[in-house]
């Protein structure tokens, strides 16, 4: 159908643009659904926090009064997000394929490190006797961080495939492969930025003071 390689690339570029636009629309709706879910969790959290048995984990005598580990984890996720943004920008230029690959590997590593960091916080809480069944505040912490982690793990599957493609791209510069990789990286970058923002929101919520919860609850009319 196509007579020369330039036309072929042009056609593939158009095809790529169409597919990325479609995938992005799908991703935006997925992020809207995920946002809806976490927003409802937020409302449930605030409402439940107004019952007298609630023991906020951020109180001075509670484990999350020291947020060092959580800040460290947040930094790891931010590194992953920034690395993906670099990858997204660098793949526009074919000469940068090695930089793209390194950024992707860094994003993967930082994400895995974030998940391990979150598990360490879980382990610390459990070791101190803060089980999900002992207080609703603990249960929410496990539930919200767990669900956030699961969403990240889902993205990690796509990120791993994209990283593998990047690795191949560093050795064989193929236009179709570059376009497919570019598409995956764009989607991953958007998704990671979203999950970073979501995590920062959750972080603020889970370590907020009882007074903040009471103020929000009052504002909502609870």
């Amino acid at each position: 159908m196509y007579t020369n390689s330039n036309t072929l690339y042009l056609s593939r570029d158009k095809d790529f643009l169409r597919r990325i636009k479609t995938a992005k629309t799908g991703l935006h709706f997925l992020m809207a659904a995920i946002s809806s879910m976490f927003l409802l969790f937020l409302i449930a959290y605030i409402l439940r926090s107004q019952v007298s048995d609630w023991e906020a984990l951020s109180q001075p005598w509670q484990p999350l009064s020291d947020t060092g580990q959580l800040w460290f984890n947040s930094a790891l996720l931010a590194v992953a997000s920034i690395a993906l943004e670099y990858a997204r920008r660098s793949i526009k230029d074919l000469d940068n394929s090695k930089l793209t690959r390194d950024c992707m590997l860094l994003a993967c590593a930082a994400t895995v490190a974030f998940l391990i960091g979150q598990l360490l916080v879980w382990k610390k809480l459990a070791a101190m006797g803060f089980m999900a069944s002992s207080n609703a505040a603990n249960a929410f912490f496990y539930l919200l961080t767990g669900l956030h982690g699961l969403h990240l793990m889902g993205g990690l599957v796509v990120l791993t495939v994209a990283t593998y493609r990047c690795k191949r791209l560093a050795f064989e510069l193929q236009e179709p492969l570059r376009l497919r990789t570019k598409s995956s990286i764009e989607l991953c970058a958007t998704y990671w930025h979203f999950l970073l923002l979501l995590w920062l929101g959750l972080f603020a919520l889970l370590t907020g003071s009882p007074e903040s919860y009471a103020a929000i609850a009052k504002l909502c009319g609870f």
């Binding site: 709706f29 809207a32 659904a33 995920i34 809806s36 879910m37 409802l40 969790f41 449930a44 439940r48 048995d53 999900a132 069944s133 207080n135 609703a136 249960a139 539930l143 669900l147």
Partner: peptide, 25 residues
């Protein structure tokens, strides 16, 4: 459906945890 089903999802998960591991949502 994309915006409302999450509410059922949220309540379903929380009730499942109340039933299985004894949380008190």
């Amino acid at each position: 459906a994309l915006l409302a089903f999450p509410a059922l999802f949220v309540s379903g998960i929380m009730m499942l945890l109340d039933k299985t591991i004894g949380t008190s949502f």
